[in-house]
Nucleic acid binder design. Structure first.
Ligand SMILES: [Zn+2]
Ligand SMILES: [Zn+2]
Ligand SMILES: [Zn+2]
Ligand SMILES: [Zn+2]
Lengths: 141, 141
DNA sequence: ATTGTCTTGTTATGTTATTACATCAATTGC
DNA sequence: GCAATTGATGTAATAACATAACAAGACAAT
């Protein structure tokens, strides 16, 4: 999917996420945007839905929170989605429970193994979630 | 962790989950146990916490729901937790969005790759979530 | 019996997400 | 120009998921 120019609300939500160094819940985003005219959760959820669809934002299922995509094209094997944009395949997250920092990475072997399992069972995967909760190097020190 | 005998509430919750062929939310479990004297969410959540701790129940993060463990010791490489009981390491789930059936499996290679990533970054993993949402063979047919 | 620990019951509250409906703006076809 | 369509927005109400706080009961160890 090619991503069109962002609407006003989408831009506001994305900017908030990009400036944050930890995942934010939809309601936290809402609070941060009250001064910009946001009054209801739906304004946030609608923007998040689109941004997620564009691949610019990821939802962290184990946290019920959202992060701006931190995928680095350069340090990646080149796994892309069929979509346009900077899209990517399955991505994994390591989430520090101490400082909240999220590391986004891609592992081709992991993808491949999960694909193999799916193929062997005739399971048709649509979306895969991989999240490692733990403590980052800095916080563990 | 060795698992002690289950308490009354823990048994009731576990039985409900074991009889179900799809994941159940805490509130659905609550409804099913009204006739057994359950009146409040906390009665369910407390039991679920313990059952999860014992490794008898898993929480599906992408669904906010719970399943009884379907781990087959026999078809497993032998990855065990340090705990007693039938404990296991990281397990993956394939969840059919059509019929709700959940396939629980373990892939040693995947575990190993994620461990490698953690080690390389000095990240200390505590709990890993792997969930594949899609459509099962039966439903895709 | 007293203490400590674990489980339970109950009420209230907090947090996350969606439904329903009205409105507004940009685009397309005539 | 002027419908008709489509997509974005605003607002209120509600649903769904989860925890805090406190009281009371069960049970074992001393
Ligand atoms: Zn990304
Ligand atoms: Zn950290
Ligand atoms: Zn299991
Ligand atoms: Zn199915």
């Amino acid at each position: 999917m090619m991503q069109p120019a962002l609407t006003k609300n989408q831009s506001l939500v994305f900017d908030v996420l990009e400036r944050s160094d930890a995942p934010l819940s939809a309601y936290t985003i809402l609070d941060k945007l009250r001064d910009n005219g946001f009054r209801a959760p739906l304004q946030v959820y609608r923007a998040l839905d689109k941004l997620t669809e564009f691949g610019m934002v990821h939802r962290l299922e184990s946290l019920n929170a959202f992060v701006a995509c931190a995928h680095r094209e350069s340090e990646c094997c080149g796994a892309k989605s069929a979509h346009g944009g900077h899209g990517h395949g399955t991505v994994a997250f390591a989430i520090c429970d101490s400082c909240g920092h999220v590391f986004e990475f891609h592992d081709h072997t992991v993808d491949h193994r999960l694909d193999d399992w799916s193929k062997s069972k005739g399971f048709k995967p649509a979306k895969t979630t991989i999240e490692i909760r733990g403590v980052c190097a800095k916080c563990a020190a």
